[in-house]
Write a protein that binds this DNA or RNA. Structure first.
Lengths: 126, 126
DNA sequence: CGGCATCCATATTGATACTG
DNA sequence: CAGTATCAATATGGATGCCG
């Protein structure tokens, strides 16, 4: 049996393209931040611990290019730039929540497994 | 209103820890490969286009450490090493499928958005 | 076969300085 | 405020060779 293996994961397949997009350290966090509503650049920056201004700019540009986020410049002084999820961006929240829920429920078990693994390594160094 | 912003995404929060684990280029693809059943090292390697032996080894070790994958060495010559998802690992498949489904359904729209964005940049180079 | 060690090119990121 | 530009540090990944 087992006649039908699915296709291998080729470079351009949906899984790969998705991972290339949201598989970096900041993209998902920005989307989750914007789920609360439109936010200014500095607000987003404050809510994501450790993101540099450069990385946040890059991430937001990529999200805008992907059609997941809109960028609105209010012509004032000082400038005010507001980012907001598009409908497409919001549609990603459900699936992301699925993963987040898994993380909340199962990360403790993952970390237990890590401890066990590391302890075993110490006992049998090689 | 809007009294209650959720906590910011601190460095050690579940979202961050999850992304640190599965946010790399290969982890998700390995899990999806193993969903079909136990597989040998070389089988996995063949099914993921472009993964080097070094990266696959690293990824499998991390997954084993996380308790998501078991590694079984069959003491034969030549050696045969079989990897298999644990129950914990299998529990991650549902959430991952959610994301994959989103990708399949919406990546075309994302790529349209990119084209539009890039075309606009060409028109107004700066 | 599976996998470790090494070397090396390149990508990613952070820090800093500067601008409209 | 919200960027851009530049440089330096680091992380990542691939290629190769060797081993049980």
């Amino acid at each position: 049996m087992r006649s039908t293996e699915p296709d291998p994961y080729q470079r351009g397949c949906p899984s790969r393209r998705l991972l290339d997009r949201i598989g970096d350290r900041w993209t998902v966090l920005v989307i989750l931040t914007l789920r609360e509503g439109p936010r200014r650049f500095s607000e987003i920056r404050r809510r994501i611990d450790g993101v540099s201004q450069k990385m946040l700019t890059q991430t937001l540009r990529a999200l805008e290019r992907d059609g997941l986020v809109t960028r609105t410049v209010h012509p004032e002084v000082p400038p005010r730039v507001v980012y907001e999820l598009t409908a497409l961006g919001r549609s990603l929240i459900g699936p992301l929540d699925g993963l987040l829920g898994w993380a909340t429920a199962n990360l403790p078990e993952v970390e237990d497994a890590q401890e066990g693994y590391d302890r075993e390594l110490l006992r049998t160094p090689r």
